[in-house]
Amino acid sequence: MQDKNERRTNRERSETTRAVLIDAARKLFIERGYAETATPDIVAAAGVTRGALYHHFEDKKALFAAVAEAEAEAVAAETEGAVLDGMRPREALIKGGEAYLAALAQPGRTRLLLLDGPAVLGRAGMDEIDNRHGTRSLRGGIVFVVQAGGLPRDLPIEAMTQLLASAYDRAALAIETGGDADAYRAALAMLIDGLAALCG
């Protein structure tokens, strides 16, 4: 029994160290950017040894990937949390999009996920992360609206998911640099309504 408790304690300690490293790295990547953040700075901020960092992550890029994964997961959760049971399909899709923009507006997220992410991990690497989180949520929302009759039945789901995701990402980047958030939200809602009108 003691060995079992000891193993559990070791696992919990390991998970805690990993979480501390991800949190420290996130703060530094946001503050300085990926290129200007050195692993000794991450180790110092996390209060762990260099060996602990390399026990959990192969290198700085692998740590960045873990940070991006955690942030993308958080954004998806915030987006999905804004869609309430009983919402009409169009409203659910638009509310989810607005929640996505709000989630990306949190300090550092746009840079981390939309700028540094593709630059560090490559477009394919970042797409893999997106497909597990935000893109998956958006695809599900589009399918829901199509099935409810709010979008054309013959809508090419995958292509539309990619195009709408790009539109929302572009809006987030524009808002980050001072663009009118209300104007971008309105334009995206008009885009969705324009697609819905094809059903009429």
Results as ranks from 00 to 15, higher is better:
residue 41 D to K: 15
residue 153 R to Q: 02
residue 75 V to D: 13
residue 78 E to Y: 12
residue 79 T to I: 04
residue 53 L to F: 12
residue 145 V to E: 00
residue 134 G to L: 11
residue 22 I to Y: 01
residue 21 L to W: 06
residue 158 E to A: 01
residue 134 G to C: 13
residue 164 L to V: 04
residue 153 R to K: 12
residue 143 V to S: 02
residue 98 E to S: 08
residue 54 Y to C: 07
residue 125 G to N: 01
residue 14 S to Q: 15
residue 105 A to G: 12
residue 180 D to Y: 07
residue 60 K to V: 02
residue 162 Q to I: 05
residue 188 L to I: 15
residue 98 E to I: 00
residue 96 G to Q: 03
residue 11 R to W: 05
residue 141 G to E: 07
residue 47 G to H: 15
residue 99 A to R: 04
residue 177 T to C: 09
residue 155 L to R: 00
residue 182 D to W: 07
residue 6 E to C: 12
residue 2 Q to K: 09
residue 3 D to V: 08
residue 60 K to T: 06
residue 135 T to P: 02
residue 46 A to V: 09
residue 29 F to I: 13
residue 95 K to W: 08
residue 1 M to H: 07
residue 73 E to N: 13
residue 62 A to N: 05
residue 146 V to E: 02
residue 154 D to S: 13
residue 30 I to P: 02
residue 70 A to C: 09
residue 110 T to P: 05
residue 48 V to M: 06
residue 82 A to L: 08
residue 155 L to A: 00
residue 131 N to A: 10
residue 29 F to T: 12
residue 107 P to A: 15
residue 8 R to W: 08
residue 98 E to K: 00
residue 98 E to G: 09
residue 146 V to L: 00
residue 93 L to A: 13
residue 4 K to G: 02
residue 28 L to V: 04
residue 72 A to Q: 12
residue 13 R to Y: 14
residue 131 N to T: 04
residue 123 R to F: 14
residue 12 E to G: 05
residue 19 A to N: 07
residue 199 C to I: 10
residue 183 A to S: 06
residue 140 G to T: 01
residue 142 I to Y: 02
residue 136 R to S: 03
residue 127 D to F: 04
residue 158 E to V: 01
residue 99 A to K: 03
residue 102 A to R: 01
residue 189 A to Q: 11
residue 48 V to K: 10
residue 59 D to L: 07
residue 77 A to T: 14
residue 195 L to R: 07
residue 37 T to E: 00
residue 86 G to S: 07
residue 16 T to P: 00
residue 56 H to T: 09
residue 30 I to S: 03
